[in-house]
Nucleic acid binder design. Structure first.
Length: 213
DNA sequence: ATACAGAGGTGTTCC
DNA sequence: TGGAACACCTCTGTA
């Protein structure tokens, strides 16, 4: 039996302000290096803890490795904190080139060149190594393009099942299933007057006890 | 000490 | 054309 939605609404009222504040931080204007830090962060998170991933990004920046081509150097930093460090180090270096324009990295320019969120996401999935639907959505939320998309990871899916938005957590997420569940989540939000991005952070904080990234 | 689940999954290959 | 199976390859928390 799903848990009553009333319980969820109650929790939302308690945390609404804090969630809104966090989201406004995500939307704050970021420069291209900051944007690449967020892009790289989302390359790291699969199968790794978000906090450790962010610590790795900080260390890469301190050591001037984040924007370098030193794959081995990057991998050695990742090794202590992040799973699949060799592949991910390669992604961090390789994914930079898709934003190059005249030899300079222009991420903001690229991101703002799309007509809507779905077009941007499709481009990210097709071009950013290490990004699928979930990570592309995660990145977009973190840089202020995530108001109309869902970040369907295992925690969110578990909570969607918990409140009866979906019958059960699917074993795997195909693109079609992703869109289908995202649509259900959107409708649920509309009906209950909770912004999509707010619900995501609420579910996340439910599971981890805090509002992070 | 040792085992085992869990960590905001995605790429590649094969059929 | 889409899906299953396997690769990636490691630390933390818990018992």
């Amino acid at each position: 039996m799903p848990e009553p939605i009333k319980n969820l609404i109650g929790k939302y009222r308690e945390k609404e302000k804090e969630i809104g504040k966090r989201l406004s931080e995500f939307s704050a204007k970021k420069g291209d290096e900051e944007l690449y830090a967020e892009l790289a962060f989302c390359m790291l998170t699969p199968q790794s803890k978000a906090k450790r991933c962010w610590a790795a990004i900080e260390e890469l920046r301190e050591r001037k490795l984040l924007l370098s081509d030193d794959i081995e150097g990057i991998a050695s930093v990742l090794q202590k904190k992040v799973r699949f460090h060799n592949n991910k180090a390669g992604y961090i270096v390789g994914n930079r080139k898709i934003f190059l324009d005249d030899g300079k990295m222009k991420i903001r320019q690229k991101l703002s060149s799309f007509g809507n969120a779905n077009e941007l996401r499709a481009w990210l999935i097709a071009n950013v190594k290490g990004y699928g639907w979930k990570e592309a959505s995660h990145f977009m939320r973190n840089v202020g393009y995530g108001n109309e998309i869902a970040i369907l990871d295992r925690h969110i899916l578990r909570n969607l099942a918990r409140y009866g938005v979906i019958k059960e957590v699917p074993k795997s997420l195909t693109p079609r299933k992703y869109v289908e569940i995202e649509d259900k989540m959107k409708k649920f939000c509309k009906k209950n007057n909770i912004p999509l991005a707010h619900l995501d952070l609420l579910f996340w904080s439910e599971e981890t006890g805090e509002i992070f990234k």
